[in-house]
Simulated scan of single mutants.
Amino acid sequence: MDTILWPLMVAVAWVMVNIHRFLVFIGLPDGPGVAWVISIVGLTIFVRLLIMPLFVKQIRASRGMQLMQPELQALQNKYKGKKDPASQQRQQEEMMALYRKHGTNPFSSCLPILVQMPVFFALFRVLANLQAVATGGYAGHDSIGPLTAALAEQVQASTVFGAPLSASFMNSSAVSVKAVTVVMIILMSVTQWYTMAQLSMKNMPESAKSSDNPAMRSQRMMMTIMPIFFAFTGVQFQIGVLVYWVTTNLWTMGQQFFTIRKMPAPGSEAEKKMRARENARRARKGLPSLEEEERAKAEAEGKLKSGQRAQPVRKDRQKKKPQGSQAGPVAAGIDKTAPEDAAAEVNEETNVVGLTQEEIARRRYERRARARKQAAAKRKGQGSKNTKSSKKGKRR
Rank of each mutant, 00 (worst) to 15 (best):
L287E: 07
N279D: 14
K273I: 15
K297M: 15
M274R: 11
E299P: 01
L290R: 08
R282W: 01
E299D: 09
K273F: 13
A296M: 12
P288N: 11
A270R: 00
G302A: 13
K305Y: 06
E271Y: 02
L304I: 00
R284K: 15
G286A: 09
A283R: 15
E292F: 08
E278M: 03
P288T: 03
R282D: 01
E269P: 01
A300E: 01
E294Q: 08
E299H: 10
E291Y: 15
L304G: 00
K303H: 15
K297I: 15
L290K: 07
G302H: 09
R275W: 04
K273W: 14
E301H: 12
E271T: 05
K273P: 03
P288R: 02
E294H: 07
S289W: 01
E292T: 02
A296L: 05
K285L: 12
M274V: 05
A283K: 15
A283V: 15
A270N: 06
E271C: 04
A296C: 09
A280K: 04
E294R: 05
E301D: 13
R275A: 10
G302V: 03
L304N: 02
A276V: 03
R275N: 10
A276L: 10
S289G: 12
E294F: 11
R284L: 12
E278D: 06
M274A: 13
M274Q: 07
A283L: 11
A296D: 00
A296W: 00
M274K: 09
K272F: 10
E292P: 02
L290P: 04
K303A: 14
E299Y: 14
E293W: 01
K273N: 12
A280G: 05
A270F: 03
S289F: 03
M274H: 04
E299V: 14
M274T: 05
G302P: 02
K273Q: 13
R281W: 12
L290G: 12
G286F: 14
K273L: 13
R295H: 09
K305D: 14
E294Y: 10
P288F: 03
K272C: 10
E292A: 05
A300T: 01
N279L: 06
